[in-house]
Design a protein around this nucleic acid. Structure first.
Lengths: 252, 252
DNA sequence: ATCTATTTGTACGTATGTATT
DNA sequence: AAATACATACGTACAAATAGA
């Protein structure tokens, strides 16, 4: 047995270690988004490693969305706030291997969307409310074709994304937008014998309009209840269409 | 204005494009975790680019957790299922810039944990139930020191992680474990005038024991209610301790 | 609009490390 | 133990992008 002092060999490659070191350094120095990282030659100097090694390290950080790099004078690498799109894509990679079902997503939506609605009642600006009304206007008429129906479906998901924007809970907001995004990416295999369902369309529209009213007039419990019913209906619609979550990597 | 056919210049660097190309190729070929990617020399050949460029591309995929690379004969790069740890770390990077509050996390926990409990009632194996009981045993006695209390807190979060393991909803499971992890990483600044709260400790223990009973005997609604109360208490405890989410990058 | 200086981006060859047989 | 097959790391030369004069 080796003496306790023997450092257990760290198998991670040098670029990975350098990337970790830079992350730690960023935290220690309290660097913020926009702050400059040392230049390539400086890194080569400070870490005593080859250019290509340093570059691989920067790619790792870039892939994680933590730094951006620019060429030219005044260029270099900069700390960058991870964008929501990037975070969505990276999290989506995880679920690529998990084949989520529509039911899985709706189990969460049914718990979270009503909570969101309730927490926003009476706290939305008139601008936000108008934006919601505009979105609902996109499906004032029942869809005549399958394509049109798909468009409306995506618009109605945008409704939820807009609502989520307004939350001051970043975790809740991110999650709801993540799910709306997953559902937008659905591949819908409509059953041949299932024509567009007018009744469900009418219900969905009605729910969102009533929801806007409840939100505007601060009726928190009402908003929660409407959203809850709305989710139940939406889930039923999805499942009747045998929708499936597409297996692909989400582009950033 | 350039003719429509002019391809708008793609600013992404070559390694990034190669990484994207490989991802697309993996999807097209229906490659699965464990499947082999072309060797370095092959890539150099096929993409007509230098070794360092190819290597940067592989680092990107590796950083996202999508491939693993081994040296030696029979080595090379392989498609890899993104691990939960990796996904947690990557998502954590996003929230590093967002300063979540304990209240934010609890808004979600209060909606999701009861849902999880309800959906698992009567569906747990005896093994899983025993595991839960073991975990609760870790805080059979009230904590005497601040350190001990912290240990118990982490054990009680593990309780929720174990429960989440049992869900067949991967999205719900991931999220609950993600939140439990964030809370484990808390920096707790106890107020000097706030001694360990025996009453809250007793309540928490009681909740989890009653919860196990409800889960074992399939009392779904009861499990939901207990979890709901438990969350309310836990949130109160956290906030009374002025807990804050630590600002650091989550290591994988 | 052109040139120039600065900084990253790409190429390529060689040498070294590592795991399998 | 030696040969093999693979990734890992290095260092130099040159290309491309961009800001500023």
């Amino acid at each position: 047995m080796p003496p306790a002092s023997t450092p257990s060999k760290d198998k991670r490659s040098r670029p990975v270690k350098i990337a970790e070191a830079i992350k730690d350094w960023v935290v220690e120095q309290h660097l913020q988004a926009g702050d400059r990282l040392p230049s390539e030659p400086e890194m080569i100097e400070r870490f005593g490693m080859a250019k290509s090694t340093i570059r691989e390290a920067m790619r790792i950080l870039e892939a994680q969305g933590l730094v951006k790099t620019r060429t030219g004078p005044g260029g270099g690498s900069f700390v960058h706030e991870v964008s929501e799109e990037r975070a969505r894509a990276l999290l989506g990679n995880y679920f690529y291997f998990k084949d989520l079902t529509v039911a899985d997503i709706y189990q969460l939506r049914r718990a979270l969307e009503p909570e969101l609605a309730a927490s926003l009642a009476g706290r939305l600006s008139e601008t936000a409310l108008l934006q919601l009304e505009d979105t609902v206007a996109a499906y004032a008429e029942p869809a005549k074709t399958v394509d049109e129906e798909r468009e409306q479906h995506i618009a109605s998901l945008r409704f939820h994304a807009i609502l989520a924007e307004q939350s001051d809970n970043d975790l809740l907001g991110f999650l709801i937008r993540f799910m709306a995004n997953m559902l937008s990416d659905l591949t819908v295999y409509r059953q041949l014998y299932a024509p567009p369902n007018y009744e469900l369309w009418a219900k969905g529209k009605d729910y969102q309009q009533r929801l806007i009213k409840a939100l505007r007039y601060g009726k928190s419990d009402e908003a929660r209840q409407i959203m809850s019913d709305h989710m139940a209906t939406a889930q039923h619609l999805m499942e009747s269409q045998e929708a499936e979550v597409a297996r692909r990597f989400i582009p950033e």
